[in-house]
């Protein structure tokens, strides 16, 4: 018999994939929260360190003798270039822990859902669909976690700054510096979580349709 020409399965659009993934994210909300909490804490820490630094710098630059006394009492080196090395190291470590955290929890969710991925492939899903949906899922978690982390870090740093330096913070508030700090946190958090999504998404797509036949849950 003449071999009929079989067309190739078409890709599902990003919009439709987003639609399908969104339903999953919503219904797996608590699971997503756990994944997100790592990102929230790491980015909150990064934001806190940056914002505090901006506020202290602004207060130092005010050259106000009363303020200088408060700053010195708080242990701030006013007249020297203080070394930031240990703080940078701390930030890098916390970001690394956050990166590994996202990769780990997404890989776990791939393992949990081997059967689901197999089933989707039996129903006609292409590797591209699986990659996209996992990528969307962990990116959404990462970006949402980053936003929450920025807000949390900002609130905590402002509260701490006010309790240490009182009303001086309001008069010398470094609006531009804080805005830049938030932007940096947002950018780093997004980059970090999106790049952490790549490996799990790729691993998910490598699962075979025959995995759907596994009996064990």
């Amino acid at each position: 018999m003449q071999q009929q020409t079989i067309p190739e399965q078409k890709h599902v659009s990003w919009a439709v994939t987003l639609n399908v993934s969104w339903a999953g994210i919503k219904r797996r909300f608590f699971r997503s929260l756990i994944t997100m909490s790592g990102v929230v804490l790491a980015i909150a820490f990064l934001t806190y360190m940056q914002v505090m630094n901006e506020i202290v710098q602004a207060l130092v630059e005010a050259r106000d003798p009363v303020l200088d006394a408060i700053l010195q009492a708080a242990g701030v080196e006013i007249h020297e270039e203080s070394s930031n090395d240990s703080i940078v190291l701390l930030i890098i470590l916390s970001l690394l822990a956050c990166f590994v955290g996202i990769v780990n929890s997404m890989l776990m969710s791939v393992t949990e859902r081997i059967k689901e991925i197999g089933t989707l492939k039996c129903l006609g899903a292409l590797d591209g669909f699986i990659v996209r949906s996992y990528f969307i899922e962990s990116s959404v978690q990462g970006v949402a976690g980053t936003c929450l982390g920025c807000i949390l870090g900002l609130i905590v740093s402002i509260v701490v700054a006010f309790s240490s330096y009182k009303g001086h913070v309001a008069t010398h508030f470094p609006w531009v510096g804080v805005f830049n700090a938030l932007l940096v946190s947002l950018l780093i958090g997004t980059l970090l979580s999106v790049s952490a999504a790549i490996l799990p998404a790729y691993m998910a797509a490598k699962k075979q349709p025959v995995d759907a036949m596994r009996v064990e849950e």
Partner: peptide, 16 residues
């Protein structure tokens, strides 16, 4: 994938 999608239907023991 096209064949699985258009020509086959799968039913599993644990529903999937």
């Amino acid at each position: 994938a096209w064949v699985r999608c258009h020509k086959m239907g799968y039913i599993f023991q644990s529903f999937n």
